[in-house]
Design a protein around this nucleic acid. Sequence first.
DNA 1: CATGCTGTAATGTCAATAATTACATCCGAT
DNA 2: ATCGGATGTAATTATTGACATTACAGCATG
Lengths: 146, 146
Amino acid sequence: MQISSRFTIAVHVFTCIDVFKGDYKITSDFLASSVNVNPVVIRRIMQQLKTAGLIEVRRGTGGIEPTRPLDEITFFDIYKAVECVDNGELFHFHEDPNPQCPVGRNIHAALNGRLNEVQEVMENEMKRITLREVVCATKERISSEN
Amino acid sequence: MQISSRFTIAVHVFTCIDVFKGDYKITSDFLASSVNVNPVVIRRIMQQLKTAGLIEVRRGTGGIEPTRPLDEITFFDIYKAVECVDNGELFHFHEDPNPQCPVGRNIHAALNGRLNEVQEVMENEMKRITLREVVCATKERISSEN
DNA sequence: CATGCTGTAATGTCAATAATTACATCCGAT
DNA sequence: ATCGGATGTAATTATTGACATTACAGCATG
């Protein structure tokens, strides 16, 4: 399965906020039009980011702001905020191997460590990459458009 | 989203084949009972592994065999065989950012490289891990059960 | 207090996972 | 040659998550 587009949408939103702050009022409608999804989708993702402590949202008047500088927000932060797998496991282990089979009752313990290695490597890479890099790259591309 | 349990089931099956070959006839029913899923689920996964060239299946009489030694079959081989995302992308990019927005028309190019970095790191780790390691670990656990 | 925005529930569509039934097909053993 | 045990695969169903959309209550500020 693929990682939900909520992830790339969240990165897109952070980028918009940084690029357009000051020039435009950042509302869910404004963002929805840039991302090209329904405003409610934006608002729901914003709730997840807020719950994770990554942004603050002003009600009534509108407006969204990151709670920390962008080089302190990593892909992993966003991934965790937005990907709703309860136990946080990347791999879905078949629930119910037969305990009467020697393989069935040992495979979980024998395999789990390896699965975690893969997950850890991936998550560490996500912790290395910050929003700042993406925002900078986007701004460069914008200014070199002319 | 999580990686389908087809992955761990496939690893479980390979382990059963290696542990029980000679002592039992390896049929989809036999495997289904160890994994504790429906035999048809096993057969479908076996088809995917066969299509990927990882196993050979004997019709009529039954029987499954890996086409290569287990230390030449990696997690990545199995992952690719069993995880059916057409384009092979780990991240699902929102399809349709607004090209009239400077961010919308540049975010894909600015972000894609980073996403690929994450995917590559993960896939490289999966290429490092072979079935042999899991089968050995399982056998050790089985023999130390007494 | 009117306006514009957020928060969120309700509903619908679509795709993927997984279970299950059913049956055609294959092939070795008797 | 055929019987019995297996595989190959289609069809159906239930469940779940993604995502879209409508609707409306609640909030904050001019």
